[in-house]
């Protein structure tokens, strides 16, 4: 998607597109908002933020135990150390750590609150009714559908996000990654691992498949 602001046909607009255009044009006319600021916000969320930012945070936490402690205690100043801004309404962020005993799963049961500064905007399934309801009622079943089979002894903690509370899971560092650089570690971390619907694998699945075909 790269065509914002470049509608190059002259068809009349209708439905939600028309409604948004009417709201924007009136608010711009009244000086309530600035169209360039809206462009910048769209560009930011489409092109600048996303799960690679969270992956950097995770990799740093894996290699630097002091950073990990700071991150778990108070995430916003910790991510600021990496030059990551807290975002427009992201002054709330709590990082919850996965351990051999506890697996954390993030959801927003009522709408779609999500840790934007570190993960960007949520995937479609995160906003779905099925995920929002079942993450709470049957987290183990949801994880199974995502291909995550946890030992029954592992406790699953489900964190319900809200306007003031946003969560990110700190996944476990996989075995065998001791010699990887921080950048190589970050490349292993997936968005779903930071939501809690995946675990970080090493070697990554794609590489493992490639070897299997050798």
């Amino acid at each position: 998607m790269s065509d914002h602001g470049h509608r190059d046909h002259n068809e009349p607009e209708s439905g939600p597109a028309l409604r948004v255009k009417a709201i924007e044009s009136l608010l711009v006319e009244k000086g309530v908002v600035d169209a360039a600021a809206l462009d910048a916000i769209v560009d930011h969320y489409e092109n600048k933020v996303g799960p690679r930012i969270g992956a950097r945070v995770v990799a740093r936490a894996w290699v630097d135990p002091k950073f990990r402690r700071r991150l778990l205690k108070n995430a916003i100043p910790a991510i600021a150390e990496l030059g990551i801004p807290s975002g427009p309404e992201g002054e709330y962020l709590t990082v919850v750590e996965n351990t051999p005993e506890v697996h954390n799963l993030i959801v927003c049961t009522l709408c779609s609150c999500y840790p934007w500064p570190v993960l960007g905007l949520p995937p479609v399934w995160y906003k779905s009714f099925a995920y929002r309801s079942r993450a709470v009622s049957d987290p183990r079943g949801v994880l199974r559908e995502f291909g995550v089979e946890l030992d029954p002894r592992v406790e699953i903690r489900v964190w319900d996000s809200s306007a003031e509370l946003r969560y990110m899971a700190l996944p476990m560092r996989p075995a065998g990654t001791e010699k990887l650089s921080e950048d190589e570690l970050a490349a292993l971390v997936t968005r779903d691992a930071m939501i809690g619907t995946a675990v970080v694998k090493y070697p990554p699945a794609a590489v493992a498949r490639a070897h299997a075909q050798d």
Binding site: M1, H4, Y45, L121
Partner: peptide, 19 residues
């Protein structure tokens, strides 16, 4: 991994609320 917005108007509506 996925498109953030399916339609341009979704992006504008999103940005308006943020701004």
């Amino acid at each position: 991994e996925t498109e953030v917005f399916a339609e341009p108007w979704e992006a504008r509506a999103f940005a308006l609320a943020i701004e």
